[in-house]
């Protein structure tokens, strides 16, 4: 029971935090909806654990807990993929900026006395 209360508190915190991020226009609509759907699904599973068993049976998985773990693994893989891509994009943008400035300020030392 305590585990469920702690878990729900953390999940609600993130749920509200994302609403605030969306209101401050810090995240896109798609990003907001995707994240909130995931959080809402986890909250429902926390409150009604049998729901996961229902979905597990539909997917051909025996136990609800297994279904939750598989879903979480898939979600984490997608999250990792997106983080690696955005991290790489950020580094490449920085690289392009530094390169552009460097090339603009290139010095021909033949012409320096």
């Amino acid at each position: 029971m305590i585990y469920r209360i702690i878990g729900l508190t953390i999940l609600f915190y993130f749920f509200i935090h994302w609403i605030q991020l969306f209101r401050r226009k810090r995240v896109t609509v798609a990003h907001f909806l995707a994240f909130e759907s995931v959080l809402l699904s986890i909250i429902i599973v926390f409150i009604f654990p049998d729901v996961s068993s229902f979905f597990a049976r539909q997917m051909g998985i025996t136990r609800g807990a297994d279904f939750a773990v598989y879903t979480l693994v898939l979600f984490l893989l997608l999250l990792t993929f997106s983080l690696v891509r955005s991290n790489r994009d950020g580094r490449e943008s920085l690289q392009r900026l530094v390169r552009e400035l460097a090339i603009r300020e290139a010095r021909n030392l033949d012409k320096i006395d």
């Binding site: 690289q95 530094v98 390169r99 460097a102 090339i103 290139a106 010095r107 030392l109």
Partner: peptide, 18 residues
């Protein structure tokens, strides 16, 4: 002889590409 300077350290690959 040309000298080009990165304002921050990027790494060997980035320097070659520059």
């Amino acid at each position: 002889l040309w000298q080009i300077r990165h304002n921050i350290n990027l790494g060997a690959g980035a320097a070659l590409e520059t």
